[in-house]
């Protein structure tokens, strides 16, 4: 297990370096990178221009430039935001809680709903309930997240007037964003739980348990479920990636003052320092969560630990 953990952590750092090389590489691919750090329409005097060049190490080889950039990023210095004229990391810190609240609640809900729907639909296979749950999952997987959000806003905020359309406030503001975000993720979880539980229920040890007279509930929850839940866990990491996309979209539609919306806004404002800062922070959160998922997976399924 220690070996597995060590390999996994090293691998995480490698991916982190990969992400940073991509972000850095992009900044050096479109002409003089100084333009990316310049507010649109502003003019720099020759001295400022030269000084910024030295700061970015433009007279030095690419490797040194990368190390300079990465060193700054490690200390949390991505440069001042062009739009807000303040340190990027400070802005990110202010926006972080809103995102963590929203996505935390949605994630827990997605797993609870997804797993229970998956179980219900596998146990009642072929019933109307199964048909309904599969429809729910199908919609969640095929509907564009932004469209689902807009349709929900139209029905519950505009048409029925039960809930507010956007922004942050009391708990009513949470309902629609959380439902949208959770629906999208729980669809995948429900599908995988269903197919994996069906597969397990087909295996011989389940037949044996039934044959020796173990009750139906006990067979499902004690014998089958433990094995069946390994599959949904394996996709946890993949799920995190779609969850980030979902957060970005949902925050944009619901005008949620979090990191996802900030990322889109600053991309549209050409605010390069802020965008890179958010990307790196998001990537770190993402990699830590998938590390946690992997460790949990290795803990549950010992076969994984032999690496």
């Amino acid at each position: 297990m220690a070996r597995f953990l060590a390999l996994r952590v090293i691998y995480m750092f490698l991916v982190m370096i990969g992400v940073s090389i991509i972000v850095f590489g992009l900044s050096r691919m479109a002409g003089d990178p100084r333009y990316l750090y310049m507010t649109a329409g502003s003019r720099w005097s020759q001295e400022v221009w030269d000084a910024r060049g030295r700061e970015l190490g433009l007279d030095k080889p690419m490797v040194v430039q990368y190390l300079l950039w990465a060193g700054n990023a490690l200390t949390g210095d991505f440069g001042d935001s062009l739009w807000y004229q303040r340190n990027s990391l400070d802005i990110i810190k202010e926006r972080m809680p809103a995102t963590l609240q929203l996505s935390g609640i949605a994630y827990v809900l997605a797993i609870l709903v997804g797993v229970s729907l998956g179980i219900a639909s596998a146990v009642k296979r072929g019933s109307l309930l199964d048909l309904f749950i599969r429809g729910f999952a199908l919609v969640g997987q095929a509907a564009p997240p932004f469209w689902l959000a807009i349709v929900l806003i139209y029905i519950f905020a505009v048409h029925l007037g039960w809930l507010p359309t956007s922004r942050r406030g009391d708990w009513t503001n949470f309902v629609l964003p959380v439902i949208t975000l959770a629906w999208l993720s729980s669809a995948g979880i429900a599908r995988i739980t269903r197919s994996s539980l069906l597969e397990v229920l087909d295996s011989e040890y389940i037949t044996l348990a039934r044959a020796k007279g173990v009750g139906r509930k006990s067979v499902i929850f004690k014998h089958a479920l433990r094995n069946a839940l390994v599959a949904p866990l394996t996709v946890a990491a993949v799920l995190f990636a779609s969850f980030i996309t979902g957060t970005v979209v949902v925050e944009t539609v619901f005008a949620w003052p979090g990191l996802g919306r900030l990322a889109v806004d600053s991309a549209l404002n050409n605010d390069f320092p802020l965008v890179t800062g958010i990307t790196v922070i998001f990537a770190i959160i993402y990699l830590l969560s998938s590390l946690a998922a992997d460790l949990l997976y290795a803990y549950i399924d010992p076969r994984i630990r032999i690496y």
Partner: peptide, 13 residues
């Protein structure tokens, strides 16, 4: 690597 983040940075550049 989360796709959406790379896409955002690339769109700025």
């Amino acid at each position: 690597i989360p796709f959406i983040l790379v896409a955002l940075v690339a769109a700025v550049v």
